[in-house]
């Protein structure tokens, strides 16, 4: 994998770089998915940080909770019927206490689903070598193009630099 990227000190020039890259997309022959943004913290107040914002995560979590609760209730009432023993003059399937456990398992289902959904949606874990620059940890914003088309490198460099890049680098895996 190869990439050309610029590092920016402030979000406004990063946004500028992003706009410049998007304008050049068609002319140079690459698409939105090749534009790479890496930051050390989320930038939800800038357009460049808004890629892939849409998600169904809350619905996944709610669904996970529902599944957890239903499975939980089924499992608990199954165990009570599988080996029916009377205690304290209560029914075999006791709805009130089972409700407490159903509730806990609902929440457990929702929590586990959230964690798993996060890992899948954020493509984690992924320990392969990717385009990366530790400078983002110092507040720099990385804007670049992965696998730039042949012959476009010089134009990309020029554009990244013109937006006010602190540094323009090339990444070769």
């Amino acid at each position: 994998m190869q990439a050309i990227y610029g590092l920016y000190r402030d979000p406004d020039s990063a946004q500028q770089a992003m706009d410049l890259l998007q304008q050049a997309e068609r002319g140079l022959g690459f698409n939105d998915n090749q534009i790479l943004v890496l930051t050390g913290e989320p930038y939800e107040d800038h357009a460049f940080g808004m890629q892939n914002k849409k998600t169904i995560m809350p619905w996944m979590s709610a669904g996970g909770g529902l599944v957890g609760g239903l499975l939980g209730f089924w499992f608990i009432s199954f165990t009570q019927r599988a080996y029916p023993l009377m205690t304290g003059g209560m029914q075999i399937v006791t709805k009130w206490p089972d409700g407490i456990l159903t509730y806990e398992l609902t929440m457990l289902g929702a929590i586990l689903t959230t964690v798993v959904t996060l890992l899948i949606a954020a493509r984690l874990p992924d320990w392969r070598r990717h385009v990366f620059d530790p400078a983002i940890g110092e507040g720099k914003i990385l804007i670049g193009v992965t696998d730039p088309p042949e012959g476009s490198q010089d134009e990309l460099r020029r554009r990244l630099r013109s937006a006010g890049a602190v540094e323009v680098k090339e990444f070769i895996a």
């Binding site: 995560m57 493509r123 392969r128």
Partner: peptide, 16 residues
Amino acid sequence: LGWRGTPKQWHRLEMA
């Protein structure tokens, strides 16, 4: 886990 800091990762983390 190989965290990089793409906008997608940040959004998902914040949503989570």
